[in-house]
Amino acid sequence: MRRKNRKKFVYLFITFIILGSFLIFLDLILRPAIIKVAESKTQLMATKIINEAVQKNVSMINYQDLMGIHKDNDNRIVLMMPDTVLINRISTQTTLDVEKELEKMETQGFTLPLGLVTGSTLFSNTGPPIRIGIIPVGMIDVTMEDEFVEAGINQTKHRIYLNVNTNLQIVVPFLRSDVNVSVDVPITESIIVGPVPEWYMKFNSQGEMTVPGINPRMGE
């Protein structure tokens, strides 16, 4: 009787060791996959939120609203000056909208089927759901930026866009990972015919004007 009990105990012990080893093996394989898929999903969700927030606040904005153009008597552009009041309003409202929607993400989170993280197309929608939590970390940085791009002979394209940068933390059972989300969303653009003025008021990181400076393109 004792021999049978001892043999049963050995079988149970071996089974426990095999099962434990298998679970550890699965954990080592699935842990990076879970993090990778969760980070990708979080990036997509946050990017969608940022794009929608920006479009909501600039849908009725055109180039002339943001940039004042001053010309001389020969109709040549001599000064370009951004509307700082409007820029600050857009940046502030966009920050508030993104913050509000990210807070909803934190409350709702999302789930991933276990089959999705295995990389199998056949079983991508199968398996128990894995709950993913999202926590906004740090500030939401919204800046308006611009760039000049050559657009043809004697033509320059002036692009204006918002850069939105924030950090999120994804939380999986026993796992955490930080995700940086940085999105450039185009707002408006215009073609400048003729040379870009040597002097113009530039955007800075607060959406305000700097003192007149030399257009960096002029030195190229």
Rank of each mutant, 00 (worst) to 15 (best):
S190D: 10
R176M: 07
E198K: 12
V185A: 12
I187N: 01
E150R: 05
I134Y: 00
I192G: 05
N163G: 11
M201C: 10
V196D: 02
Y200H: 14
D146F: 06
K202D: 14
T188V: 13
L168K: 01
Y161E: 07
E198S: 10
I160L: 15
I160S: 08
P186C: 11
L168Q: 01
V193D: 08
S182V: 08
V181Q: 06
I140Q: 04
E198C: 02
G133F: 05
N165F: 01
L175A: 05
G152W: 05
F174Q: 06
V179I: 07
V137P: 05
F174P: 00
F174I: 10
I140W: 00
Y200W: 10
V172P: 00
P195C: 02
V179K: 09
L162S: 04
N154Y: 06
T143W: 09
V196A: 15
S190N: 15
I134E: 00
T188W: 09
M144K: 06
N180R: 12
F174V: 09
M201V: 09
K202L: 06
N165T: 09
I140V: 15
P197N: 12
N165H: 12
V149K: 11
I134V: 15
Q169F: 04
V196H: 03
V181I: 15
F148Q: 10
E150H: 05
F148D: 10
Y161S: 15
K157R: 14
L175G: 01
D184E: 13
M144A: 13
T156E: 05
V179N: 09
S182M: 13
V172D: 01
K157W: 02
P197Q: 10
M144D: 03
S182R: 14
E150S: 10
F203K: 07
H158W: 08
V142H: 02
T166S: 11
V193K: 13
A151P: 01
V183K: 03
D178L: 12
E145T: 07
T166M: 13
G133Q: 04
I135R: 09
V172E: 01
R159K: 14
G138H: 14
T166F: 08
E189C: 07
S190T: 13
M139N: 14
V164K: 01
V137R: 14
V193E: 13
V193H: 14
V181L: 11
P173F: 06
D178T: 05
L175V: 08
I187A: 07
K157I: 02
N163A: 12
Q169I: 07
F174G: 02
E150N: 10
N167W: 03
K202N: 12
Q155F: 05
G194M: 09
F203H: 14
N165I: 04
I187W: 01
D184H: 09
N163V: 13
R131P: 01
T166G: 02
D178Y: 09
I170E: 00
V196E: 12
P136D: 06
I187M: 14
E145V: 11
I170K: 00
N165A: 13
G194E: 10
V149E: 10
V171Q: 06
E189S: 15
G133R: 04
Q169E: 15
M201N: 05
P197G: 12
V149D: 06
N163P: 06
S182N: 15
D141K: 11
I192T: 03
N154A: 12
I132T: 07
